[in-house]
Simulated scan of single mutants.
Amino acid sequence: MDSIKLYFKYIRLSIESQLQYKASFIMMSIGHFLITFIEFLGVWVLFERFGSIKGFTFEEAALFYGIVHIAFSITESWTRGFDTFPRLVRLGDFDRILLRPRTTVLQILGHDFQIMRIGRFVQGLVVLIWAIFRLKIEWTLGKILLLIGSIIGGNFLFSGLIVLQATLSFWSVQSLEIVNSFTYGGVQAAQYPISIYKPWFRKILIYVIPLATVNYFPAMSILGKSQLLNYPIWIGWVSPFIGFMFFIFSILIWRIGVKHYASTGS
C-alpha cells in the first residue's frame, strides 16, 4: 500500500509539472485529438469508397477503432517512463534508480505520466460512443463488462509491448524501430477487423502479438457475430485476460534484463 501511495504521488507531481504551462498542455492535447481524428477520417474515406469491407460496415469498424485507441491512449499516459527508458540507460540515470529502495518498475512508471494523451483518449471515446449509438447493440451486463475488459486488456497488452521495448535497451541503448511496428503499427492494424487480412498476418495478430484477443474477438462477441475465424464462441469472452497475462510475461522478461544490466561505468 505504501508503494501505491508513492506511485500516485509520482503521478500528482508529474501532472502538476505539466500544468505549469497550461497553454502548452492545451495545444498538445488538441494536437493529439486532431491527429487521431485525421486518422479516423482516413477510415471513413475508405468505407465511403467501398461501402463495406469483408461484410463489415463503417459503424462496426468504428467500434474496433474506438476500443483500440482508448486502450492505447491509456498506455501512452502511464508507461511513458518505459517509452523513454533508453535515454535513462544511455545517460547512466538508471544506476540511481537501482540504488533506491523501491522496485524499478514503480520508479520508471512514476518517472513520467503524460496527461496530454487525453486528446487521443477523448477522440477514441467519442468514436466509440458514436458507434454504440449507431449500431444499436442490445446491451447486457456481460457485454458492458466485456467492453471494459477489452479496453483494459488492450491497455495491458500495449503496455507489455512497451516494457519489452524498454528491456531491449539493456542490450541496445538505441530505440529499436521494429518494436514500434508492433506498438504504433499494431494500433493501425487492430483498428480494423483482423478477418480482412491475409491468414499469415492474422496468425501474427493472434499468436505472436495477440492484439486480436483484446479487440477482434471481444468486439465480435459484443456485436453478436459468430464469424470468429473457426474459434469457439466463448473465446471472445475470455480473450481480454490474455492482455494482462502478456503484461505479466513482459515484466518477467524485464526482471531478466535488469539482472543482466552491467551499468555504464559512469
Rank of each mutant, 00 (worst) to 15 (best):
E16V: 07
E16F: 04
Q20W: 00
S24W: 00
S29C: 09
G31D: 10
H32Q: 11
I35K: 12
E39T: 08
L41T: 09
V43H: 04
F56E: 03
A62I: 02
F64A: 06
I70K: 00
S73G: 15
S73T: 07
T79C: 10
T84Q: 11
P86T: 13
L88D: 15
L91G: 05
G92S: 07
F94D: 00
L98I: 02
L99R: 02
T104S: 15
V105S: 10
Q114Y: 00
R120L: 03
R120C: 03
V122Y: 01
A131D: 11
I137F: 02
E138H: 05
L147G: 08
I152F: 06
I152H: 01
G154C: 07
L157T: 08
V163Y: 03
L164V: 13
W171G: 15
S172G: 08
V173D: 10
V179K: 02
G185R: 03
A189N: 09
A190P: 04
P193A: 03
I196C: 07
K198W: 13
W200A: 12
I204Q: 10
I206V: 15
Y207C: 12
A219R: 00
S221V: 03
L223H: 08
Q227A: 13
I233C: 01
G236L: 01
V238P: 09
F244T: 06
F247K: 01
F249W: 12
S250M: 06
V258I: 14
Y261E: 09
A262H: 07
A262M: 07
